[in-house]
Design a protein around this nucleic acid. Structure first.
Length: 216
DNA sequence: CGCCAGGGCCATA
DNA sequence: TATGGCCATGGC
């Protein structure tokens, strides 16, 4: 049976508490982190961010040669590609004078379209940027969300945007709630719903579809 | 030792 | 539209 998305949110929030995401000191760091974390563990991203710290502002990174940037973010995997992506993003960012407040004034749909036009920014990366740096209420679909909802027996749509809208239709367009939801799904996903079908500490354990079948 | 992380692009059919 | 290869570190 399909579980309601609001219900799962309440469960996770009650269990883990507020997450206060995204883990970054500045919005700009958040934006860079969003690219670095593509298909990469956050642990490896943190190492890259430590190396990047002294250069962590738009103008400095724009001046930095791509090869040098790549070396600094080496620990984040696919570093050559990600250096290109960061460069492409900065170039777009530059057209707004690196002004986050100015970009926030753009309506959500238009802004999402602009982000998706940047080479190397796909749906998920665009959506975390929208959610955490540009303060647009949006549900982020990621591997954890798919895995977690599949695990509790939901029929998760294959299409990114169909899944996203399905969740959004059920939730209030509340920025903080959606920021917390994505954070909670990631934090939960890091611990649960991977290989172990069941464990007692899992707050979703009674909803798990393994519950009836693999528990002897 | 092999696997896979908070993806996205590209070529092919 | 839907796969599959590619990118290429570090923790477990």
């Amino acid at each position: 049976m399909q579980q309601e998305y609001t219900f799962i949110y309440e469960r996770l929030y009650q269990h883990y508490g507020p997450q206060n995401w995204w883990p970054a000191e500045t919005p700009f760091e958040m934006l860079i982190g969003a690219i670095l974390v593509q298909n990469t563990s956050w642990r490896n991203v943190e190492k890259a961010l430590v190396q990047l710290k002294p250069f962590l502002d738009p103008k400095t990174i724009e001046r930095l040669p791509e090869a040098e940037l790549a070396q600094l973010i080496k620990s984040s995997v696919f570093f050559n590609i990600k250096a290109k992506r960061i460069k492409a993003f900065i170039q777009w960012f530059n057209t707004y004078e690196y002004d986050i407040e100015k970009i926030k004034k753009i309506d959500k749909k238009t802004l999402r379209g602009e982000l998706l036009n940047i080479h190397g920014i796909g749906r998920e990366t665009a959506d975390v940027m929208l959610l955490y740096a540009f303060h647009k209420p949006i549900f982020v679909v990621d591997a954890y969300a798919r895995r977690i909802f599949t695990r509790i027996g939901n029929d998760v749509p294959a299409s990114y945007d169909f899944f996203r809208k399905q969740v959004e239709n059920e939730l209030p367009a509340d920025l903080i709630l959606l920021q917390e939801y994505h954070a909670l799904l990631v934090e939960h996903g890091k611990i649960h719903c991977k290989t172990k079908p069941l464990c007692v500490e899992c707050p979703l354990n009674d909803l798990c579809d393994f519950h009836l079948t693999s528990f002897v």
